[in-house]
């Protein structure tokens, strides 16, 4: 690791102030950032640890019935607490990494990092979630901006993510077995206003909505409605784990499985 200083604010306002320092970077659960620091892929001058800020942790339901997850809430807590109120979200959280990672890694950190193979971006996008920060609210449709990029400004902290609860939903992940990141992951969520399908792990530009599938499923929510529909391989990721054509094929397969499992 390159040298850095650490700040340990206990309130959101102190964290926001600390992040105004030159070269400052927020440190959530650290399950991605600390390996990156060890590999010298990141060189912040000041790390602002968000671990001790209780006001951005925890899960509640707001007046509109949306599930509100604090940005500093670890995946393990989501897996344990949302099994009744939003099972697809709990199931997604229960498949991130391994148990020790789930006890530290946070939803806010995952969304802010926007790894193209991470699970949370698919859940946020398919659920039409609202991402609340220390300064504004951002619709998931506007939040993700390509590989490891979001519209977050310098020093902006994800404080809460609000998920409208769907009528039915399911997340299918074809996991890379060593890392358990998604080789491809598809989150399908059915709302009164229509069906949303978000795909992670597949595209060279990060998480995206498969609008053609959404249109078919919004008029007929069944796997059969997707017969004959396939996703183009163009723009999909090709690496040692799978070719673009393979990933494109998986999108179709996993979407059907998600619809079948959501019922």
């Amino acid at each position: 690791m390159y040298a850095f200083e650490i700040e340990r604010p206990t309130s959101l306002s102190d964290a926001v102030s600390a992040l105004k320092a030159e070269g400052a970077q927020a440190l959530g659960g650290g399950q991605t950032l600390i390996p990156s620091l060890k590999a010298r892929l990141a060189m912040p001058e000041v790390l602002v640890s968000l671990s001790a800020i209780d006001e951005i942790k925890g899960i509640c339901t707001d007046d509109e019935g949306r599930i509100c997850i604090g940005g500093g809430t670890p995946h393990g807590r989501v897996a344990a607490e949302l099994k009744d109120s939003y099972p697809a979200l709990a199931s997604l959280a229960a498949r991130i990494g391994d148990p020790a990672v789930r006890n530290r890694g946070t939803i806010g950190g995952s969304l802010a990092n926007n790894d193209p193979s991470a699970c949370w971006p698919a859940a946020a996008l398919a659920s039409d979630a609202v991402i609340k920060t220390d300064r504004r609210e951002i619709a998931a449709d506007d939040f993700f901006a390509g590989l490891f990029e979001t519209v977050l400004e310098e020093g902006e902290i994800v404080t809460e993510v609000r998920f409208p609860v769907p009528q039915a939903a399911n997340y299918q992940k074809f996991a890379q077995p060593a890392s358990r990141f998604a080789l491809v992951g598809v989150f399908v969520a059915k709302y009164e206003a229509g069906v949303r399908v978000a795909v992670t792990g597949a595209s060279e530009s990060g998480v995206f909505r498969w609008t053609e599938a959404e249109e078919k499923l919004s008029s007929d929510f069944s796997a059969a409605a997707l017969e004959g529909l396939s996703h183009a391989a163009e723009g999909m990721i090709g690496d040692l784990h799978g070719t673009p054509a393979y990933r494109a094929h998986l999108i179709g397969v996993l979407t059907k499985r998600a619809v079948a499992a959501a019922g």
Binding site: I6, R8, L27, G30, Q31, I34, P35, K38, L47, S49, S51, A52, G76, D98, P99, A100, V101, N103, R104, A178
Partner: peptide, 27 residues
């Protein structure tokens, strides 16, 4: 690197990888 689990400890009763967290985060 948080992959093998040999460094697992309990922090406030929860198991975590002690290699993937900084001592300063646990004051």
């Amino acid at each position: 690197h948080g992959q093998c689990g040999a460094c697992t400890v309990l922090v406030n009763g929860r198991r975590i990888n002690s290699c993937l967290t900084l001592a300063a985060m646990h004051d």
